[in-house]
Design a protein around this nucleic acid. Structure first.
Length: 512
RNA sequence: GGUCCGUUCGUCUAGGGGUUAGGACGUAUCCCUUUCACGGAUAAAACACGGGUUCGAUUCCCGUACGGACUACCA
């Protein structure tokens, strides 16, 4: 019988969710949708010392922003609640004890100092892997080396202890990763990882196996950094007797820094010139700020489209995908193996592509809001005209306001380089006549009207328009480059254009 | 150091025993345009190296190099 596909994204609330995590969530979401299954979110907060206030809200807001909302989560519990490991605390111990009873785990009473001493001793003896394992555990203080009575006494008297897995001495552990194929590891290279910490909380290793089992998880899609501990997890499923329902693993390639090498990390933040977080984040302890893609002006669908291609491709030459299309096209088989360098230029390109396909009405909201923040009200109609004027030229929605400043404010100064090259007596003559013509113009001033009138003026003045167009642009905008001038005229209105011309005529001098 | 994972244009990648090794971003040039962009076109640009296997290897195998992850009572 085939089970319903259930996948989970399991971040720990230790700060802002970084984009690698977002991509993991995205792949989980896509897979769940594609398979008609469920996407759950589980908060892995078993390390109370690393808890960061606000981190959980941040995760939620990030996923909501991108539209990859979990079907089940702490704030939308399903039948396997709770979804925070801290709230599941009570259930882990019985599973750890089950393992102890089966002889697959044991109590260990070693102090931090003793563990440190052990590592130093082994390092001094040039042991290649100084770790708590099947060899070294025989020299430590645990329920395998202590007498039954002493172990019992220690437990009864409340001595601090942890529960460690008892890794078998010689055993091949294998797993069939959906992305990497068979991975074989010998148990002798594994160590006796702590399962239950002395504070009564489980470690990630125990908690994730117990929870995945209890939550009916069928596929574990996570970052490659988990691959080394995957054999441990396989062993745990075996020891629990849950092999039949063990999820399939898929270890995703890492997101790398765009320059040199190494995994893209939270610390890289704005140092590399782009965000590594979906949303802005202020560390509640240090007040350190990090910028997010949302606030930088990336559209959620564009960002998603960019992100999904970091490690996956559809196998054909399509580049633009809506979330629905991604669901349709997605498959784990098409996820690559190699680490992926992060390229912000492509992210910008995606943003441009998406802006161009957005309705003007939607984009106008950005312009209006940005202007309002500067205390300026732009009427809807004018906003729409500006959007269509600039739509093909911007990368971010905030560019609309930035790039329309020359419309909002008449130029005081003129680009000197353009002025010296393009300003001439003919331009002055034409503009003088054009301003006069504009004065007598009545009715709505469309781009076509502006053009026709300008052409007529040029003709009667005997001037070739092509020769002076740059000068005209300079006079009205102060710049030598920009969007369609006649449309700019239409937005400005005939009176404003005439006014700007007259100012330019008194300011710009003819150099012959 | 050890274990594991990886390696096609600068970047994201397609492909896969015989291909002019394809696409996208970026770069350059041209066209369009009364400018700049957009758009269109073109160009430069890659199979890490060495051995096998094979008639033939970028593709399969083994090494080497390089890169990465992991190596906590963190996840």
């Amino acid at each position: 019988m085939t089970r319903e596909v259930r996948v989970r994204f399991a971040p720990s609330p230790t700060g802002a969710l970084h984009i690698g995590g977002v991509r993991t969530a995205l792949y989980n979401y896509l897979f769940a949708r594609k398979m008609g299954g469920k996407f759950l979110l589980r908060i892995e907060d078993t390390d109370q010392t690393r808890f960061v206030p606000g981190a959980e809200d941040y995760i939620r807001e990030s996923l909501d922003w991108l539209g990859i909302t979990p079907d089940e989560s702490p704030w939308k519990p399903g039948s396997v609640a709770p979804y925070r490991q801290s709230e599941r605390k009570e259930m882990y111990m019985q599973y750890a004890l089950d393992l102890v009873n089966k002889g697959h785990a044991y109590y260990a009473f070693d102090t931090a100092e003793e563990l440190e001493a052990m590592r130093e001793r082994l390092t001094a003896a040039r042991v290649v892997q100084p770790q708590y394992n099947s060899i070294t555990r025989t020299q430590m203080k645990n329920s395998l080396t202590l007498s039954k009575d002493e172990a019992a006494t220690r437990l009864a008297s409340g001595d601090p202890y942890v529960i460690r897995i008892k890794i078998p001495l010689k055993e091949d552990v294998r797993l069939n990763d959906m992305i990497r194929g068979w991975v074989l590891v010998h148990s002798s290279t594994l160590d006796d990882k702590v399962l239950m910490k002395s504070d009564g909380m489980p470690t990630y290793h125990l908690a994730n196996i117990v929870d995945d089992h209890l939550m009916g998880i069928t596929h574990v899609i996570r970052g490659e950094e988990w691959l080394p501990s995957a054999p441990l997890h396989v062993l745990l499923y075996k020891f629990f007797g849950w092999e039949d329902t063990m999820p399939q693993f898929a270890h995703l390639p890492l997101l790398l820094k765009p320059d040199g090498n190494g995994k893209l990390s939270k610390r890289d933040g704005d140092k590399l010139g782009f965000p590594v977080f979906p949303l802005n984040w202020t560390d509640p302890f240090t007040q350190e700020k990090a910028s997010g893609f949302r606030e930088q002006g990336y559209l959620p669908d564009a960002f998603l489209n960019f992100l999904v291609f970091l490690g996956w491709n559809p196998g054909d030459e399509r580049e633009i995908f809506s979330l629905e299309e991604l669901v349709e096209a997605f498959s784990i088989e098409r996820i690559g193996k190699a680490g992926t360098k992060f390229d912000i230029a492509k992210a910008k390109w995606y943003n441009e592509q998406y802006i161009r396909t957005k309705p003007n009405e939607e984009l106008a909201q950005f312009l209006i809001a940005n202007a309002k923040a500067d205390g300026i009200t732009i009427p809807q109609e004018k906003a729409l005209a500006i959007i269509s004027l600039l739509k093909d030229r911007v990368t971010f929605p905030s560019d609309f306001w930035r790039d329309s400043q020359f419309i909002m404010t008449a130029p005081k100064d003129f680009d000197q380089e353009v002025a010296s090259k393009k300003w001439n007596a003919d331009a002055g003559k034409l503009l003088t006549a054009y301003a006069a013509a504009l004065d007598t113009f009545h009715g709505p001033f469309e781009a076509g009207d502006a053009k026709m009138l300008l052409e007529k003026t040029a003709e009667s003045e005997g001037i070739k328009l092509g020769k002076v167009m740059q000068a005209v642009r300079l006079a009205i905008t102060g710049m030598g480059a920009g969007p369609d001038l006649m449309q700019v005229f239409a937005i400005l209105g005939s009176a404003e254009v005439a006014k700007r011309i007259r100012y330019a005529l008194t300011t710009l001098t003819v150099v012959s």
